[in-house]
Amino acid sequence: MRRHHDMGGLDAGPVDPAEHDYTPWEKRVDAIVRLLAGKERRLITLDEHRRAMEDLGPGAYDELSYYERWISAITNILIEKGVISVEELGGKMEAVKARWQEARE
């Protein structure tokens, strides 16, 4: 059975030639993945990362932006592997959010 990411040969509209400059946030996601998959750590493999993105399901796969898929997938893998816990992540997200809000005021 063909899964939703396996789109080679399917019909689709014209290629949209628009490009955007990568934002600092997107580059941070890329950097995290490079560091985790790099030969010094090999905490994840690229196939594992792709599989985790496919496991987000057809809805999320199409609705999330490219790097949103990446960070969602990598976070799921880190939780699955026990590198970080859901509780730690929740606490840290609160702290990051508070700091950002403070910086914006």
């Binding site: 995290i32 985790l36 990598i74 880190l78 970080i84 992540l89 840290k92 997200m93």
Partner: peptide
């Protein structure tokens, strides 16, 4: 997800 990105980076 932007917040999560920085949270994950900091935890690591």
């Amino acid at each position: 997800l932007m917040i999560m990105t920085d949270a994950v980076a900091e935890l690591l």
